[in-house]
Design a protein around this nucleic acid. Structure first.
Length: 149
DNA sequence: GCCAACGTTGGC
DNA sequence: GCCAACGTTGGC
């Protein structure tokens, strides 16, 4: 799960008991939240457009996908006037921080690893802010982070 | 700041 | 329903 740390960083999440992953306005990600993401699932926290680009920690989903309240808030930068109230277009999920890595696992290191280099996040031009990770890739990242699997 | 990639929009 | 134009993402 990607976030620009200027907007929302792993340290921001660390300060909160749980965080709402809101504002995503991409249909593929919406479907992923709706169909794939469930409470108890774990996810990596990835910093994009950052001084140190890479994976910074592990999160756990506290919820599955539910209607993103910001789409109905005219004061929100994520407000979507075309989203029907009775059929919300966009979803959010709630997350909590499981672990912040002692060091960022940089994108360059992911790309250099034979297993982690297969992750979507390593692919040129990939833009989805939420992406699936295989069990093998998960373990590879934990190894690169120096974390017990 | 550049620009490649790709999702979205809208005219037809 | 095609596809060009446009907007956004995000690494570099």
């Amino acid at each position: 799960m990607k976030s620009e740390p200027d907007t929302y960083s792993v340290d921001d999440l660390a300060k909160e008991k749980q965080g709402m992953w809101e504002g995503c306005r991409n249909y593929t990600v919406r479907n992923f939240m709706r169909d794939q993401m469930a409470p108890g699932d774990q996810a990596f926290f990835y910093h994009s457009s950052a001084k140190e680009i890479g994976i910074v920690g592990i999160m756990e989903l506290v919820s599955g996908g539910y209607p993103d309240p910001t789409q109905f808030d005219p004061k929100s930068e994520y407000f979507d006037p075309k989203s029907p109230k009775d059929a919300p277009r966009w979803l959010a999920v709630d997350v909590r921080l499981v672990k912040k890595f002692s060091q960022v696992v940089p994108l360059s290191v992911l790309k250099a690893d034979p297993v982690a280099s297969g992750m979507q996040v390593c692919m040129r031009g990939q833009r989805l802010s939420v992406q699936p990770v295989t069990p093998e890739e998960w373990q590879a990242v934990l190894r690169l982070a120096g974390v017990e699997g």
